[in-house]
């Protein structure tokens, strides 16, 4: 039970109920779509990148609590960051949700540390990040986590 409480702790539930930056973006410089065929989770991600800096980020879509919360937390953390900082955070986030190991300061993402104990949910937590990464690198094609 504790493991699951870890996973669904209040912060995840809050972000699921009231996701941050959950909106369209008219002036997006890049967008990408993501899809998790296992769950049917779908996300559309918007970025506004200027001079190597992420000025704005938002998302739309439907998904489980973990995918929605992960996307929501991600947007709050990388807004204002440089592309390099974002990539570093993604790499460390990925390590954390697949192994449980936390490298450096990952801020609020720590609430998702328990995901590694539930392998079937790793894809839920990582969908928004993979989609963001694709948008960042100009891959508008559908991201799939299968």
């Amino acid at each position: 039970m504790d493991d699951l409480r870890d996973l669904y702790q209040q912060l995840i539930l809050d972000h699921n109920r009231n996701p941050q930056n959950f909106r369209d973006m008219q002036n997006a410089t890049a967008t990408a779509n993501g899809h998790n065929p296992l769950c049917g989770d779908e996300i559309k991600l918007f970025l506004n990148v200027e001079n190597d800096q992420i000025l704005d980020i938002s998302f739309k879509g439907s998904g489980c609590a973990i995918s929605k919360a992960s996307a929501s937390i991600m947007t709050t953390l990388i807004k204002g960051k440089t592309v390099a900082e974002t990539e570093s955070l993604f790499a460390r986030f990925h390590t954390m949700i697949t192994t449980g190991e936390i490298i450096g300061d990952i801020g609020k993402l720590a609430v998702l540390a328990g995901v590694y104990k539930f392998p079937s949910r790793v894809k839920c937590a990582s969908l928004s990040w993979h989609t963001m990464n694709n948008a960042l690198h100009g891959k508008e094609n559908l991201t799939t986590t299968e």
């Binding site: 699951l4 996973l7 669904y8 065929p37 489980c64 609590a65 949910r121």
Partner: peptide, 22 residues
């Protein structure tokens, strides 16, 4: 307001196995 995957995960926590998905 509860995605079937979250439901299935939380039911599993109570020892109940159901299917969630398409």
């Amino acid at each position: 307001n509860v995605h079937p995957h979250d439901l299935s995960q939380l039911l599993d926590n109570d020892g109940i196995a159901i299917r969630a998905g398409h």
